[in-house]
Design a protein around this nucleic acid. Structure first.
Lengths: 136, 136
DNA sequence: ACTATATATGCCAATAGGTGCATGTAGGCG
DNA sequence: CGCCTACATGCACCTATTGGCATATATAGT
């Protein structure tokens, strides 16, 4: 298959668009558990979709211990063109909730690194509440 | 499905990208037989893919007798954004041959309208040769 | 009305893609 | 070494998509 059509195939799934959207509104690399909590999808889904995005050449991975930090692959000019288009095309109204969830989740980082992993939602919301109180 | 992902689904097929590319390099509306000759795909494929592009809101159709003239639907701002992106993204090197085939095929138009329909390839090339000699 | 032709579409088989579940892998830490 | 944890992946099932063929539709010309 031509590379162009396989790139659009990678974009043709809503979950993958939501993942890309997270990268577009937050320039930092994100680890899988943060993406899972932002999108509220099972971990295996996030991993699989990230693999597809990686195979399409859109995403890079960098291991840091057991954490895997994913980010947009911007070193190719075609990708930069695509990402800046995507940012306008997706607009600010789509996936607003994902964005909010991600922002909350990123509050739990320490020194810019994810230290939480997978916890039950109840624990997660409690952690976030506590963190908010501390920082206010 | 969200509208964004369904648009990318429409773009995720190489034949459909080739069709859109024809519209991007040639602003005039094109009829199905011209697309068929440019891409060298069966007529039913062209029709089906055009229908998918139409359902995705990317293409408009206007009947003129038995001919169906298709063109990009540019009256929506999201589409214009998409098309200008696509034009850069597809670049000038992809689908070069399609572009040449289309240009040849368009030589056979008379007063801006398609008058040829479906003919065997041998006849088509002969018609084009003759036309070239006349116009030189 | 009949025919020719440009286009659309219904049906089938083959294939691809997504989800869910379970399990595997690999790094950190005691 | 052994356990915990973050992440990856193989398998089964289901659904969606595509190509091919035949045929339907619709309009023009005679």
């Amino acid at each position: 298959m031509k590379p162009e059509s396989s790139i659009f195939k990678a974009l043709s799934d809503e979950t993958r668009l939501r993942i890309l959207h997270l990268f577009l509104v937050n320039k930092d690399p994100l680890c899988v558990c943060e993406i899972v909590d932002a999108l509220k999808v099972p971990q295996y889904q996030a991993s699989k979709h990230l693999l597809i995005l990686k195979n399409a050449g859109l995403v890079d991975v960098k291991k840091r211990g057991t954490w895997a930090y994913h980010s947009l692959r911007t070193n190719e000019s075609k990708n930069s063109l695509l990402f800046s288009f995507l940012k306008s095309f997706l607009g600010s109204d789509s996936f607003e909730e994902d964005k909010r969830n991600l922002e909350s989740r990123l509050l739990l980082r320490e020194e810019g690194k994810c230290v939480v992993g997978f916890v039950p939602i109840s624990t997660l919301t409690r952690l976030i509440k506590t963190k908010r109180r501390q920082t206010v």
